[in-house]
Amino acid sequence: MKICVTAAGECIDAEMDTRFGRCPYFVIVDSETMDLNAIKNPAASTSGGAGIQAAQSIADKEINVLLTGKVGPNAFPILSAAGIKVMAGASGSVADAVKQYKEGLLQETSAPTAEAHASMAASGRGMGGRGSSGGSGRGTGNNSGFNK
C-alpha cells in the first residue's frame, strides 16, 4: 500500500506538514517495505489554486492513503475521485504519521477539513469575505512626516 504524507522535508524523519496544498514535499511510503519516494510539491509556492494543483500532482501516483492536516473543498473531490483516502489527526515525523496510521489511530475524513482560501475569499465566498481589522487604532499618534 502506498501512503502519502505531507512533509516539510524529503526523508522519513522529516516533520509532517499539516498543509496539503502548500506543503513543500509529498513523501510516498510503501507500508510493507518502508521504501520511500519524496516529490516536491509543484503547488507549494503558487499564487492560487494550490490545493487543486497539489491534488492533481499526486492523483496519478497510485496512492491509497493521504496523511495530512487539512484538505480544502477544491482538492478533496480530486483526491476522492482518484480513490485516495484522506486521514486526519496525524502528527510528528513522516515515520510517526505512518506508524499512527498502521496502528489504526487516525480517522478517515469524508469531507473537506479546511475552508476555501485566496481567490474564493477575495470574491466574498468562504471565510466570510470580510476584513478583520475592525478599524481600530487609526488616527492616533504622530504621523512622522506623512501627509506633509
Rank of each mutant, 00 (worst) to 15 (best):
E32I: 10
A44P: 02
A82P: 03
V86C: 13
K40E: 12
A14F: 05
D35I: 06
F26V: 12
A122I: 06
K40F: 01
A14G: 10
I63E: 00
K40L: 07
F76W: 07
S80D: 07
T18R: 07
G145I: 15
L105N: 12
I52N: 08
G89Q: 06
A88E: 11
A97S: 14
S136L: 07
D17F: 02
K85P: 00
G72L: 08
E108W: 03
T109R: 11
C11D: 15
V71L: 11
M127R: 04
N41Q: 10
F146Q: 15
R22S: 09
I28Q: 05
H117W: 02
M34R: 11
P24W: 02
V65T: 11
A111K: 15
T109E: 10
A90G: 15
L66N: 01
P112M: 05
G131Y: 00
S47H: 13
T113N: 06
Y101N: 10
A43Y: 01
F26Q: 07
C4N: 04
E115Y: 02
F146H: 13
S136G: 09
S80R: 11
R130D: 01
T140P: 00
N143Q: 14
D35P: 00
T33E: 06
R138V: 12
E62P: 01
M34N: 08
I12G: 07
R22M: 10
G92R: 11
D60I: 00
R138P: 00
E32R: 11
G134Q: 05
R19S: 12
L106Q: 09
D30M: 08
K70H: 13
F76Q: 03
A97N: 09
L105K: 14
I12R: 09
S119M: 13
A81P: 00
S144P: 00
L67E: 02
A121C: 06
E108H: 06
M34D: 05
M34E: 07
H117E: 10
A121M: 07
Q100M: 15
M34L: 14
T18L: 09
R125I: 13
A114H: 08
L66T: 02
E10G: 04
V27R: 04
R19K: 13
G83N: 08
V65W: 01
A55K: 03
I39Q: 08
K2A: 14
I52W: 02
A75P: 05
R22G: 04
T46M: 12
M127Y: 01
P77A: 13
H117S: 07
I52C: 10
C11G: 15
A14I: 07
Y25T: 07
R138C: 08
G137C: 06
S47P: 09
K2F: 12
N74W: 01
E103W: 03
V71A: 15
A55P: 01
N143A: 13
M120H: 04
A90Q: 05
S80L: 10
L36G: 04
Y25E: 05
K85Y: 02
A43K: 03
A54V: 09
E115R: 05
T113V: 09
T33H: 08
